[in-house]
Design a protein around this nucleic acid. Sequence first.
DNA 1: ATGAAAGCGCTAACAT
DNA 2: ATGTTAGCGCTTTCAT
Lengths: 352, 352
Amino acid sequence: MARTTRPTLTHVAASAGVSVSTASLAFSGAGPVSERTRQRVLDAAAELGYAGPDPMARSLRQGRTGIIGVVFAERLRHAFRDPVAIALLDGLAEELGPVGPGLLVLTGNDERAGPSTEQLAAAPLDAAVFATCDLEEEPLVEPLRVREIPMVGIEGPRMPGVSLVDIDNIGASREVTEHILSLGHKRIAAVVLPWRPGRQRGFLDRARRDLSGSVVFADRLRGTEEAIGASVHAWEAAASTVEEGRAAGRALLDVDEPPTAIVAHSDLLAAGVIQAAHELGLRVPEDLSVAGFDGIDTPWLDPLTLTTAVQPMVEKGRIAGRMVTDLLAGRTPEDVLLPVHLRVGGTTAPPR
Amino acid sequence: MARTTRPTLTHVAASAGVSVSTASLAFSGAGPVSERTRQRVLDAAAELGYAGPDPMARSLRQGRTGIIGVVFAERLRHAFRDPVAIALLDGLAEELGPVGPGLLVLTGNDERAGPSTEQLAAAPLDAAVFATCDLEEEPLVEPLRVREIPMVGIEGPRMPGVSLVDIDNIGASREVTEHILSLGHKRIAAVVLPWRPGRQRGFLDRARRDLSGSVVFADRLRGTEEAIGASVHAWEAAASTVEEGRAAGRALLDVDEPPTAIVAHSDLLAAGVIQAAHELGLRVPEDLSVAGFDGIDTPWLDPLTLTTAVQPMVEKGRIAGRMVTDLLAGRTPEDVLLPVHLRVGGTTAPPR
DNA sequence: ATGAAAGCGCTAACAT
DNA sequence: ATGTTAGCGCTTTCAT
């Protein structure tokens, strides 16, 4: 009795001599079924090669897929190069693991910063987490808002309908810079995050400071300048990577009167700055102090440990996951602001 | 006229004064609709706040979700730490980007190597790509095989029903080792990949060599031993990371008569070995030659460039994506074996 | 404990 | 170009 099409619950039920509803209960366990019947159904299923209830049919009926979308405003290769994003995903996966099938990764490509509107409209999601969508004017939330998909933002601006997991970017950045100042540094430069959109590499000009871009970019810059009490000589990186940090370091250090300290707004950028310094024959921290932001593992800097602002990366993901769970249960979670603490490492010291 | 429930195509059609099927066509463009009608439907939709056809209903009807699953046999944080995996995902996303919503990431957790059977049975996939599932006895394929989900494996064993994108692990590993031998090295050690399952750190014992584990582990080891013509003194890493490489380097080098060359079966492991060497006061390549495998960017080794076997990481993903497309179109793609080429860098030199 | 029936929202034949 | 109709495969009332 070969069948060319996949068996369905109807076939299984028929073969077991029960109704479809009973067969359904035998699989879901959502109702009373005698052990004997249950076994008959499962046996019939095994014999027919039935793989269990069809996920799409079940989704349509129940109104949910179990899938959580994770939205990145960049191409996958760039998003996943960032240890902070990976840690976030890990926390998210850990928290949501038992819940459903998994995480649907929604990224952009070379042309688009983030998934297309069509993608967002067609994705079978129960909820979405914005991993790196920190723009004031975020075109990515609208398609999901229309669908009434619960949303959680990470370090974004406060937006109606988007629950927020935030960290104290301004305060932490200020604290790092204050540490540098307290060591006695006068000539301080900064390497700031990509302004986004239209990321570019180069000295930060006034125009870009004032236009609204990424709030993380703006907050970390603001913290640094609040500490200094004036605007800081800054280089804008096109991405948060070691290579970009290195380019920044070269640009800032290979001049007549280089700074004695550089505040980088990510650890990867800081690592690049340190590398550039070494290449230019400068010792860290003797000739140059360098601070970062994030608190990622930097085993390759060993024996140096980076002075940095340690943010709870995995925890951000876990909390976002918990918020998703709450939202799906109909609860309205409070926004969360997580603390960041200064970790003084070996890359900062008084100027000579 | 407030509605408490989300509007459906039926509401939109009624409001526009057309039938549901016409309204459907107005959205999908899959049939002839007059421009005037189309506009009326879209206007009605906009007014009602209709977000477009429901993805679940559409999936059920059409029999596909547009979602491609990517299966990792480890926890997310470990999988995504590997630049090779990221590059693969990037190629995959690039190739499949226009096709559908996105990639569903299916990972394990601390207890399970990979997603659970339930997860695999319930995930709404059109096809699956096994990113790091290289076991002979892979429990992860069975749940998908039963569902008749098209599958593509990366560097796995040849399995019925799983299309394969492979690279020449044996040949490339042999070539790297031959390069080391041609330089005149006699005392050669290897740092091999995790044997999996039951990854552990330590000198590789005979028992593990003989048991069937990861085929990538086995193939790269085999290539090295084929070149040497004998079994090699080897350390098994618990993961392909810089830290593990460092631990391996310490174990292999901090002895009375250390090897003059170490063949590491990944670039991250090689980077760790180099770091360990530096910490022990050994210069690379003067005192120790080190080779890797993969060809990832290692800017932090600068100015050193790693001698390694360069594999087409992104290309693997692209081809896997193309295979998925083929399989979904009903075609049966041929298995692919991609070439790997030796890149001689500055980390290998004749022994002193 | 089991069965009958309705319907989730949509698309695709088919008819007009 | 538009409408009618049948179902995709399942879960969930509601009867029995």
